[in-house]
Nucleic acid binder design. Structure first.
Length: 585
DNA sequence: CTAAGGACTTGGCATGAGCCGT
DNA sequence: ACGGCTCATGCCAAGTCCTTAG
């Protein structure tokens, strides 16, 4: 991780790591110099860990350098070693296990400004691990010379093994994979619960609207919080400890996270789960605005909680009075799925498959934005967009040339199709075209060289004589000719018909193919740009009722594979086989 | 009531397999 | 067949929420 400068330069990371490092050095007999004399290690900045880093770099390089056959063999070996742990028997049925590997030792990183970043996460020993297994099942043997912490026969829990991690004292569980029966059932239950909320939502909304004016401050705070959770899909916001990153949700919002702009605009600006920034400027119900103003009234100041009379458990207790099992997070599921359902319903079934997929993704994106699912813009995003637009332009240019070839075959077509048809696209100018032509020529040269080298390699291998450099030069002339041809075309604005037996029909066929490719790439480009800082995966995986996607797929006749990957199809198997196209959320 | 314990879902991101255009 | 790139997948951290203890 020496290349992970973002972490390594963080002073908290350094301090936490160095404390643990010194303790471990001490515990393992102290440090020695090359002569074997004991020495004290006192300063992090004087330590050079590069040899460790280089060691791992070397291993990486070796792995990368393996031949395809070696890689295949290594993978087969790994698969064989893992095979016994991949599945378990659950009530007599074979089920896939999710995370069957214990987490290896590492430096804890955490997200955001985590006070414990850099701490050494130690190796988990069998003595720390509790096994949960059927009463009559044979207990798997711990590693030689070790024993399990405990063997339990808990019928209620869904975990197979459990341990406590040393950095934060969190529990870690080995559970079944997402495609297992238990996980599928609980997923189904989750969405059914959200659907049930539909029957109560009007009453709840009416109630909290009324509650916004409640005399009792506790109730008024509660109603305001439910309003925010329902309208803006905020998380519940449990209290957090001193030794965790400072993030908030609804109930833990602080004074400085909410700015009021009269008459009724509210600006939210805070770090939510995973220290992801939530920023939104919204108009709210006038009474909500008034309430927030009251909740922020002096002597309240920065650092104080807005909902000081409210806890998540009180809020959830209240919610459960409307409907058993109703909690804050159900609103997120409900509103996400409801939004998706509404958007999908509005769609028309016209267009090509990529267009329908894009429409679906657009709806998916709206849900992701609602849930504030973000990602950092990929490092090469701008470059990638540039490249994509160049490829589109390249196709437009290619199309223009083919059109000129049609004219070369039959100049009379110009009148028939209209002159505009044969004009250059407006985003192509001569400067770009010249650059592009140079690029195409260079590309051709590279190709020729590569082919030449390859043929020579083959000749050498077969014991034949290699071709001379002269031959390469000869071949490279093709690129020069191409350049000359472009030059001529630039001058005369005419393009000779290329290919064997060129006909207008053939060219038109090529053009419509290019048109289709351009269309697809434009969609792709738009999607990419819109998605640069929105993560669609989380909402698709956890919030949008998969049955909505199945219905859309059936109704609009788009294969489900366009929306769900293989693992997702397995996870949502219960949904895929349960609904027809009339199903509604 | 609060705090801690415990079990489960949700979340972003690194990575590596496989896909796609050439 | 190959290399670049995309996207699926695994990883594990960080939430939610229930239960239990005091």
């Amino acid at each position: 991780m020496l290349n992970s400068t973002h972490n390594v330069e963080n002073p908290i990371f350094q301090k936490n790591f160095f404390n643990d490092f010194q303790a471990i050095i001490k515990k393992t007999g102290g440090a020695k110099d090359p002569q074997g004399k004991p020495i004290q290690i006192k300063e992090f900045s004087k330590c050079d860990f590069r040899t460790i880093f280089e060691h791992y770099e070397k291993l990486r390089a070796e792995k990368k350098a393996m031949s395809a056959a070696e890689k295949k063999a290594a993978k087969a070996e790994k698969d064989a070693a893992e095979a016994p742990y991949m599945y378990c028997m659950w009530d007599g049925r074979k089920q896939k296990v999710g995370n069957f590997r214990v987490e290896p030792p590492a430096l804890f990183r955490g997200r955001g400004e985590h006070p414990k970043t850099g701490t050494v996460k130690t190796r988990v020993m069998p003595e720390q691990i509790t096994i949960n297994i059927g009463k009559d099942a044979p207990v798997p043997a711990p590693p030689e010379g070790h024993r399990w912490k405990e063997v339990r026969h808990d019928q209620e829990g869904t975990w197979l093994a459990m341990w406590q991690e040393n950095v934060n004292g969190n529990y870690k569980y080995v559970m079944l994979a997402a495609n297992s029966d238990v996980k599928g059932q609980s997923d189904y239950k989750k969405f059914e619960k959200a659907r049930e909320l539909k029957k109560h939502i009007d009453r709840i909304r009416k109630d909290y609207k009324k509650g916004l004016k409640d005399e009792l401050m506790v109730n008024r705070q509660r109603a305001t919080a439910v309003y925010l959770i329902d309208q803006f899909a905020l998380r519940a916001g449990n209290e957090k400890g001193e030794d965790e990153a400072d993030t908030v949700g609804c109930c833990s919002l602080k004074f400085e996270h909410v700015t009021l702009k009269p008459p009724n605009t509210v600006v939210f600006d805070f770090l939510g789960k995973d220290s992801i920034r939530y920023y939104d400027e919204v108009e709210v119900d006038p009474q909500v605005f008034k309430n927030l103003k009251i909740f922020k009234k002096p002597p309240k100041k920065e650092g104080d909680e807005i909902f000081d009379r409210l806890t998540t458990s009180a809020l959830n207790k209240h919610l459960s009075s409307y409907m058993p099992g109703l909690t804050a997070k159900v609103f997120r599921t409900y509103n996400a799925s409801y939004t998706m359902a509404t958007l999908l319903k509005k769609m028309s079934a016209t267009g090509t498959t990529p267009e329908k997929v894009k429409q679906y993704n657009d709806a998916n994106r709206e849900v992701a934005i609602l849930c504030n699912h973000k990602r950092t813009v990929a490092a090469g995003h701008a470059d990638q967009m540039e490249k994509l637009s160049d490829r589109i332009k390249g196709l437009q240019y290619q199309k223009w040339r083919i059109k000129q070839m049609i004219l070369a075959l039959d100049p009379k077509i110009k009148k028939k199709k209209g002159a505009a048809y044969f004009e250059l696209d407006e985003d192509l100018d001569m400067e770009w075209i010249k650059e592009h032509q140079a690029f195409l020529a260079e590309e051709l040269r590279q190709k020729i060289r590569k082919k030449f080298d390859k043929e020579n390699e083959k000749r050498a291998a077969d014991g034949e004589k290699e071709m001379k450099a002269k031959e390469l030069e000869e071949r490279l002339k093709a690129a020069d000719e191409l350049e000359a041809k472009y030059k001529r075309e630039n001058k005369t604005k005419k393009v000779e018909a290329e290919g064997r037996g060129p006909t207008v029909e053939k060219f038109e066929g090529q053009i419509s193919k290019i048109d289709q490719r351009i269309e697809n790439m434009l969609l792709q480009a738009e999607d990419k740009e819109n998605n640069k800082e929105v993560a669609l995966g989380t909402s698709k995986l956890n919030y949008i009722d998969p049955r909505l996607t199945v219905v859309f797929s059936k109704k609009f006749n788009v294969p489900i594979e366009k929306f769900f990957s293989k693992t997702m199809r397995e996870k949502f198997d219960w949904a895929i086989k349960s609904v027809d196209e009339d199903w509604e959320f």
